[in-house]
Write a protein that binds this DNA or RNA. Sequence first.
DNA 1: TGTAATGTAAAACGTTCGTTTTACATTGAT
DNA 2: ATCAATGTAAAACGAACGTTTTACATTACA
Lengths: 174, 174
Amino acid sequence: MDKTTKLTAAAERLFDRHGYMATGMDRLTAAAGMSSRTLYKHAGSKAQLMARVLTERDRRFMARLEVQSVDALFATLEDWVRVEGMRGCLFLRSRAETGGDTPEIAEAVAMHKAAFHLRIEEVVAVDLGRQDPVLAEQVLILLEGATQAAVYRGAESVSAARAAAAILMERARA
Amino acid sequence: MDKTTKLTAAAERLFDRHGYMATGMDRLTAAAGMSSRTLYKHAGSKAQLMARVLTERDRRFMARLEVQSVDALFATLEDWVRVEGMRGCLFLRSRAETGGDTPEIAEAVAMHKAAFHLRIEEVVAVDLGRQDPVLAEQVLILLEGATQAAVYRGAESVSAARAAAAILMERARA
DNA sequence: TGTAATGTAAAACGTTCGTTTTACATTGAT
DNA sequence: ATCAATGTAAAACGAACGTTTTACATTACA
């Protein structure tokens, strides 16, 4: 595993566990097992490191969303929260912590959420046989809500959201 | 408006806009229009101030949720996001920024979310004429999801969630 | 009138922040 | 054998952090 990969992975873990602002660069160097000189050569700055973490997470998350049904979206989310934990959406958290005032971060978040929304619209269209923007919006809300609720309600939130989505899909078909 | 009230209101606004950790005490004193000596007499510490902001927000938010129907919950949320803005849930944001490691904050968040969940279960029971824990969980997810989605999708997320909840309620009645 | 409370303005506390620099070691290709 | 790249360890940078203190002004009540 090369230095940049190791750094990005360590940063993601610490940002997720302790928050972005609360995670200092010294903690990062210790966790990544490198000197601050090397860290800055690879990362550029803390903001750039945050943006890189988000871009990498977007890649990993979106790869999992290459499915053909709405139900599979929720199955994927169930796996995701089991593997990655339930501390809320790292994208919106980064935006909230920076007030949206750091361009590279705001951009990474906007990119991810646009792709996320588009993917849901596509999956709904495939599953339903036609486009339905309102239904897609509702599926998006259930996915966001399950992610958020899982923080304090646990992983069962995802299955409850999954069942709700099934009802909405069923009704849209009838 | 007394000093403590003014301070709490200013803190809530700044924490919401810029994030908890990114908001320094000097910015707080300037916004509240008081010296740091007075601020610390009223607030105790930054963590205590954060907890006080949350407790006060809980009071204000929960007062609005004294309604008799699920649809009214979403009507309330529509008002709320119009008045208070759409930057996500300040409770979960505070927990995420502190990693859950600040007892007074973690406790304020846990209290609020427990009350929130209970209130939804009550409203669902009144509206439906019987208890339905799974449906209540789904309504909670739609409320959380609308709050979260509104950050990047706008206020229309709330009306989409409202419509979804109406479908779930209708089906539960049949 | 005097005293206790409550406030302001501003300096100072020690710590930690993100970042850069200095000095030196290890490596790999020519 | 050597040059350039890449790394470490650690000190240092100025700025900002949360918090306390010093010195002084205003108010309100006995």
